[in-house]
Write a protein that binds this DNA or RNA. Sequence first.
DNA 1: CATGAAAATTGGAACGATCCAAAAGATCGA
DNA 2: TCGATCTTTTGGATCGTTCCAATTTTCATG
Lengths: 335, 335
Amino acid sequence: MKRRPTITDVAARAGVSKSTVSLVLQGSPQVRAETANLVRDAMRELGYVYNRAAATLRGSSVGLVGLVINDLRNPFFTEFAASLQMALAAAGYATVISNSDENTALQAKLMGSMIEHGVDAVVICPAHGEAGATFDPLARAGIPTLQVLRKMDERTDLFPFSSFDYAHGSAEATRHLIGLGTRRIAFVGGQDERSITQERMAGYSAALAEAGMEPLRLPGRTSRAFGLEAARRIRAEHPDCDAALCFNDLVALGMLAGLAREGVVVGSDMRLIGFDDIEECALSWPQLSSVSCDIAVFARDTAAALLGWLSDGQIPPPEQRAAVHLVPRASSLGN
Amino acid sequence: MKRRPTITDVAARAGVSKSTVSLVLQGSPQVRAETANLVRDAMRELGYVYNRAAATLRGSSVGLVGLVINDLRNPFFTEFAASLQMALAAAGYATVISNSDENTALQAKLMGSMIEHGVDAVVICPAHGEAGATFDPLARAGIPTLQVLRKMDERTDLFPFSSFDYAHGSAEATRHLIGLGTRRIAFVGGQDERSITQERMAGYSAALAEAGMEPLRLPGRTSRAFGLEAARRIRAEHPDCDAALCFNDLVALGMLAGLAREGVVVGSDMRLIGFDDIEECALSWPQLSSVSCDIAVFARDTAAALLGWLSDGQIPPPEQRAAVHLVPRASSLGN
DNA sequence: CATGAAAATTGGAACGATCCAAAAGATCGA
DNA sequence: TCGATCTTTTGGATCGTTCCAATTTTCATG
């Protein structure tokens, strides 16, 4: 196996200097088109592969963006990751996707590895818990970092935060349920100490208060399995409950399955609304009402903000909220 | 913002030479423990960050593994990606995850970017179609590459292939349905020209032939949406069909929802089996029978094979098959 | 044809680690 | 105390690019 060709080899072959080759590589307009073609031909003939490590060492960027997600198995995040990766790839950046699995120690380790690799920027939906070990090294290295969907570090001048306007969404959903004549609305799933839960609860509580209704809370994980379990518990412990707003679609879909097991007709006996509006909502039976957060658009906006930061030094505002809206379907409206 | 400290700075601070610092960095046993601690203290005090680009340039490995998946939105692949990433992270490798979205041109571009970044190895579940543009550069660069779950390049001496023993799994599932007294079993979803479909079809066809039964084929996409559609079509066009083996769980879950819409009782009127046994199978209503492919274990085995290749030059066998087994649940057994 | 300005090209010093060969120190038996 | 041997430490060349300053080429104009 022979050595990979370098720009020096290309230069020799094309009969120019390596500086010229470098210029061509960067698409500089100051090299004559004719010469540039000569160089490009030489590259093709030699099977030249650009060596980013060398370029990086000399001082240019790595072309790598780190993405750290707290739960990559959640389709909502998967969609975010996939869309973000596509948008960044279009701008020539590769994406290192990592799953912290809600483990702050692992998250800090992953972040260390990313910084070593010299990522140009980081997008992080942080694990819940101690965040210093993750964010301090980023601050020290001065790496542009965006917190998305969850805020764990308050230095939003360093780490701008962007998310959805969850409080409005949950208020809208709750009012929708109240308008349908429900009497007792539960909020199911999500841990109370987490910021997303708090935001979603806030809108729910506010809407209930407007109507003079009492909240009913079933905290828990944010998985399908918990939804299944919650369906059983809510029937056993709160027989008067006739509607549920779920932390997310996974919980709602779990409840949907659980309520079917219990013989409950979703849409009339019990009205159900999820959060996120993942693709499956329109495909379930009955179809699941959900507060739609257009994650693909959000991902593209995130990519745009990041690219603006990287290319023009345009620091995004400390906090941004994307609009959400309720998509009513059979699970709340009935058939 | 001041310059990041380098090993030279660390060396100065610790009062040793930069060679010694480098040795410490690599955990060499030939540096005295006392000296090593001195160096480590200096690193801590200066907030030293290892510069992989420089190391890579000089000739060592990048510590990066590329993962290219044809459909990252499929939970089966997500689980694979997440598990693989965890296993590789434990061995000190970062993972660049990319989604080719079943687009060979994009896939080739992503691969080019990965090679530029100097990935030490690649794991790829290739998009269907022209594969040369993806694999040739890998062969040229001599990068250890594993094809998983799908084979698009026949040079298995260069690109070993590992997957599940799908044919056995679908035969077992089909025999199970036959044993339950079904008369007409459809195979739903998957494109006939793809290798995975062919393998899964092979076991199904063989088992049907044993029983002297006729196949019934509904090819199509491998999504929940197609399953939903397929349920409608199968009822309308093949009223005698009383069982379906689906290409994967997503199709089966889509059918489950679609059949529920049609008022069909799954488990008695129609028996249903999926493929992959994703988590949701045990959480759906009715619970979905499925051919279990333990993807987390498969991911760990893949990581182990790759690490063996990277560290000991141990090239994996050209083709490997992991065992699968049917997990019968209510959707085929009834209640 | 000479001239100056603009355009295109080039040489060579960085960048920050690794790793070899060689130097310096430590340890030990005689 | 003196080599011999083994353990630690060290200079310095090297990897493949970028980028600055300097040089050469091109070209329009007087």
